[in-house]
Nucleic acid binder design. Sequence first.
DNA 1: AAGCTATAG
DNA 2: ATTTCTATAGCTT
Length: 564
Amino acid sequence: MPLVTCNYEARRRGLHKLQLITEAKKICPDVIIVLGEELGRFRDASKLLYKYLESFTSSGKVERLGFDEVWMDVTDMVDWNQGLLNTHDLTNSFFHLNKNDPTIGFSYDATTIAGHSFPNTITRDDPTNTPLPSQFSDPKDDLSTRLILGSHIAQYLRLGLEENQGYTSTVGISTNKLLSKLVGNLNKPKGQTTLLPPYTDSPDSLPNPEVEATNNVQLFLDPHEIGKIPGIGCKISQKLRNHILSRPAAFSTGLIYGPTEDPISVHDVRTSPSLNPAFLESLLSGPGSHRGTGLKIWNLVHGIDDSEVQQVKKVPTQISIEDSYIRLNTLSEVRKELTALTTTLLKRMHIDLLTDNAWLAHPKTIRLSTRPRPPLGADGTRTRSFTRISRSAPLPSYVFTLKDDVDSIAEKLVTSTLIPMFKYLHPQPSGWDLSLMNVAVTNMVEVSTEKGRDIKSLFSRKREWDVVDRDVPPDDVEEMEDVVDSVQHNVSHSLQPDTETENPVELRQQGSEDLILPLSQNSEEGWDDDGEEEVEGREGCVVCGAMIPRFAMDAHGRWHVMEG
DNA sequence: AAGCTATAG
DNA sequence: ATTTCTATAGCTT
């Protein structure tokens, strides 16, 4: 069995992710192995840190990636402070954190980058290094000034994180998400790195393809293995390697850890003949590829990333719980595990979607995914496959009840919804073995907080919803095209009003919350039908969660409207 | 709406 | 980060 992950101290002693435990024990006999995981505390810490950072922004542009990474768009802060600089005394500058209160902020030296830099010319952390390039003392050099400001706000936030929250951190500072994430890797742990200008080749260098780029973006990016670029995963990087090599690239056959195959660098890709967005688009097209992938990849190898730092989201798009199993091949075991998963899921829903005993959002859909263990081949070897299969169904609204305890709701959900979904997914009563099960709720519909107006629309008549439904074509959703830079440009922020998730959609679900499964799947296959999919005569009120007979729901809704 | 792929930590 | 346990975006049907 491998180490799924390990801390920095373990890495310092020579251990790494996905290393065999036996191997790890040889290298480091006193290694402490923790079996299983308990993600709750990580989730809590993540939220806390996230909120802390958010409190410094006015834009709310703080985007989380996993539990422990975050992008922060500090363009506003940089704009403001750049305008306040006193060019005659840059060494004694004051960084303002609040537009209304000029006393809030910190002192800094606006002639120097804080922390490390790429290329490594730098200053504070390493005083033996050569002085900064001359453009750094020139406040008219817009990008240089802005990166200096970015480096100081980063340092301030890092120190605050450590002093106030007790966490050390690593930061990268640049003009977009791609570059800031990658440059942050250079000084781990607890270091910060700024990608220095120039970001473009000087205008007097000839536009000659023979001449190599001299700008720092390309100097920094070019040596990276293509698969190390965020957004270029194993599928795309393998296709790119195959193309550059004109043969199938060696794929890592190592059972546990295949660090490198046929390494191909960003430089190799970027300078490959006839490499343009249209060519990449056709090279990378195929199942699972997105429209515009060609341009996106071309942009990435040129250091261009126009993706916006996302704003804080009040509710997650999905909550899912999963577990993996050595052996799971009987329905009673499945039922037991589903109940455990569902109980955890409901608790997570309470934590993430419930504030002051009121639901922030109602997920409309429940999904059950499994990963069947592939059967043994003729030679006794297993063809490893990690593909999942899934079924979705409307989420019954009784899960939003706050009166019943979580365990009884979980039991009801398992019996009436998840077990039938499972039988749909696995029509044979036996002969399967699952290595994983996942239960997820998705399709969040935010519950507006303006009670009266909201409740009225929640209980408006069904005919209106049908009209709305027909009048709105399914592909009506606007695509957001925002431009963000971390410190360089002004943000062009075009928030589209979120009009597509109106309450009528949610209410339409009310009448169809029972699981609907194709009859052929249900009756022709081997499961005994034990009448688990009973039709409920009542349904949960979307406002208070109470179970109300269907015929009385309208009146119940009018009561809510009057209560306000 | 449902099912799946690709990518991320 | 291909073995775990999540999460998001966007494709096809």
